[in-house]
Amino acid sequence: MWKSIIKPLNIVNKAFLSPTENVVHQQLRTTYVLKRKTPPRLHKKNSDPKPLRSRHYVYELVKNEELEKKANINVILTTYVEGLGNKGEKVSVKPKYAYQDLLLPGLAVYESPENVEKYKDFMTNPMSDVEAHSSPTAMLTVRSLSGIMLSVVMNKDTHWSLKPWHIKVSFRKCGYIVPEHAIIMPEQEIKGPNMDLENREFFVTVKINNKETVPVRCRIHHWSTEVKDRIPYASEFWKEKVEPIFDEHSSVLNSIPHKAELKK
């Protein structure tokens, strides 16, 4: 019924066979690890083991390591990866993500002694590369900001000229905390209230960590505290394309992807 164990006739010294010293001293087990419920009978020295009985095939599960939580592994990035880091940076990530999304596409290499030596210069001075970014999430922020259309809501009754703090407040309204010194306003001054500017576009430039810059599409809306003076609400106003306030802004505004064209 049961296949008997084929006892290795000659147990060759494995250390002799393996060309170099085995680096994996700790045995790795991500599989079923079982244990016999009844230990097999002892056999004489230098003789074949005694045949196994049915009861020696009753096993108990010691552990199934596939269900256990895996430890993170360290990899060295070979290029800038959004949300992770610059070239040459050592990051600790989950093993599945590391293998499928970083190591196989070639975005990272294993943290072997050879690679550590190779990427040493980048590790000590990560900014030495031209492509280095100010932070792992800098490009994510750039991508996020370039996708929005900022509604700058201004007063319809009192006089105003557009200042960075107006833009800062508008940003805060849609969830972005932008300090005033990071906002670069358009060169010409925008003054109001002026109904010619209503629902017209311009752009401001946001500087991230004093390094990356991103133009952000803005649109002016007038608003009054008096309910009867308010401009009626246009549904899905962000989908329609409108004229820029300044003609020289049109080239930059055309280069920013429009909200209507972006797919969710």
């Binding site: 494995k14 066979l17 393996s18 060309p19 170099t20 085995n22 680096v23 994996v24 790795l28 087990r29 991500t30 599989t31 596939e66 592994i73 093993p95 590391a98 293998y99 294993y110 943290e111 072997s112 690679n115």
Partner: peptide
């Protein structure tokens, strides 16, 4: 199997894994 992938990562690459591991 998951064990294979783990062994590859432990050996720092598929080639090192194959070349270091005996046939048995």
């Amino acid at each position: 199997t998951e064990r294979t992938i783990n062994l590859i990562q432990e050996h720092f690459g598929f080639d090192h894994y194959l070349l270091k591991t005996p046939a048995c």
